[in-house]
């Protein structure tokens, strides 16, 4: 996965495929039991792998900020919004108390909160879900990070609020120019919001490329299956049954001795029983498949040796 400044990368996949875990890995926060297999995690060319805890702290919240899925539980119920924003601001910004407060009020206004003074003195449980998510976004913007990871930022919200929050993120991105990783299982969200897309399956990226290309001409059978399982106005025939992918995602800790999708694939061959590498289709588009679909045709490719994404 790669991402340029000001660009949005959508990470999609079924539940349990490792989307959130990969995102957390970028901030260096993986549960102690999870084993991380990655050659390189880098920000602006500087590797983040092997950073010390102290060094990580200067990155988390400062250069990479995360907006979590559930705004109900992601803020600490014991402290006011002001307390929580100030704590993070103090950690990273060298501002005096007055400047910091001005900064907080400004941020709340930027995320569309109308009476920021009141909100600052309130506790999370006194705010609605949509407001809390706006507060989370304001906190994420606090230090002008280079990268914001939004982990299913709208899943826990009402449908009407979801669009507002996505819109807000897009507007803020235009203004501040941060890179955005949008983690979602909702392809509908992706179509309008993302420049590029990475499809994850069983802990691995199986296809990545520009959003339009991947959505209109999916190369990997899994992407294809995902697309068939949602209705698209104008493309899905009225009354036609929606597709589904049989079977379930393999356990993420299962060893990658074969293509992880082999048991659910519509076109497996015997060569699929070896580890498959992510292979480029064109400079911007890649798929982890030896029989990708290109321009409506299934193309045979030689299995390359495994190289991690």
């Amino acid at each position: 996965m790669t991402l340029d400044a000001g660009e949005t990368l959508a990470v999609v996949g079924e539940s349990g495929c490792g989307k959130s875990l990969s995102a957390m890995a970028i901030t260096g926060l993986v549960p102690p039991r999870a084993k991380l297999i990655a050659d390189r995690i880098a920000l602006k060319g500087k590797s983040l792998l092997g950073l010390r805890e102290r060094e990580w702290r200067g990155i988390r919240g400062r250069r990479i900020a995360v907006v979590f899925q559930d705004p109900m539980t992601s803020l600490d119920p014991c402290y006011t919004i002001e307390d929580q924003m100030r704590e993070i601001g103090r950690q990273h910004l060298a501002l005096d108390a007055r400047a910091l407060r001005a900064r907080m009020l400004d941020l709340l206004r930027q995320v569309g909160i109308s009476s920021p003074e009141t909100r600052l003195s309130q506790y999370p449980h006194q705010l609605s879900g949509g407001l809390r998510q706006r507060v989370m976004i304001a906190i994420a913007l606090m230090c002008e990070p280079e990268l914001i990871i939004a982990d299913e930022p709208t899943t826990a919200l009402d449908v009407t609020i979801q669009a507002q929050v996505l819109r807000l993120l897009a507007d803020l991105q235009k203004e501040h120019g941060f890179g955005l990783i949008l983690i979602t299982h909702d392809l509908g969200v992706v179509a309008g919001a993302a420049d590029r897309i990475a499809v994850m399956y069983a802990g691995q990226v199986v296809e990545s490329g520009p959003t339009d290309t991947v959505l209109s001409a999916p190369a990997h059978p899994y992407t294809e299956g995902l697309l068939h399982s949602i209705p698209v106005p104008g493309r899905t025939a009225r009354g036609a049954p929606l597709g589904f992918i049989p079977g379930v995602v393999p356990r993420p800790d299962a060893p990658h001795t074969a293509c992880g999708f082999i048991n659910r694939c519509s076109r497996p061959v015997s060569a699929c029983a070896t580890p498959i590498a992510l292979m480029p289709i064109d400079p911007a588009h890649a798929a982890r498949c030896i029989r990708p679909c290109l321009g409506g045709q299934i193309v045979e490719r030689h299995p390359a040796t495994e190289t991690a994404a």
């Binding site: 702290r57 900020a65 559930d70 992601s74 803020l75 119920p77």
Partner: peptide, 22 residues
């Protein structure tokens, strides 16, 4: 394991502060 502790960690607060305060 709660979400707000994860938030505190993800925003670079020192470990002892996360443990005691949050």
């Amino acid at each position: 394991q709660s979400d707000h502790v994860r938030t505190a960690r993800a925003y670079g607060l020192p470990a002892w502060r996360v443990i005691i305060k949050h």
